[in-house]
């Protein structure tokens, strides 16, 4: 018997491997929380084995307890490559709901940085 991996081949295209869980997020709008407590929102274009990710049309959402949420974006350098080391959370964002949500005037507390 050949020692072929048992897993069925799937959309991942990798031989026998279970598909990477990040594949579900590709070409979707995602929110990323980094180790220093920043929140970035952008379209995830790709990722690799060590969880480095590419975010297109990326904006940062800054929450402060006593002033409205700010979005920080740049016209020229808005494609991010975030190093996997620095990522705490990646989550899909429902674009429809997110667009409907009026973020202007919302306040919130900043996220504390990860302590190692």
């Amino acid at each position: 018997m050949s020692a072929k991996p048992k897993g069925k081949s799937d959309q991942s295209g990798r031989p026998g491997g279970r598909k990477s869980m990040l594949l579900d997020f590709v070409n979707k709008r995602v929110g990323v929380i980094t180790n220093d407590g920043r929140m970035l929102v952008g379209n995830m274009l790709g990722y690799d084995q060590v969880c480095n990710i590419v975010l297109d049309k990326c904006v940062e959402r800054v929450f402060e307890p006593n002033q409205p949420m700010q979005t920080i974006s740049s016209d020229s350098l808005n494609t991010f490559i975030i190093r996997g080391d620095d990522i705490a959370v990646i989550g899909e964002i429902d674009s429809e709901k997110d667009d409907k949500e009026s973020w202007t005037g919302k306040t919130g507390h900043p996220i504390k940085p990860v302590v190692h």
């Binding site: 490559i81 975030i82 190093r83 620095d86």
Partner: peptide, 15 residues
């Protein structure tokens, strides 16, 4: 050195 990097921002035209 690569491991000291947090993130990189590149111009959109690179896509």
């Amino acid at each position: 050195r690569g491991n000291t990097i947090k993130y990189i921002r590149v111009p959109e035209l690179v896509l």
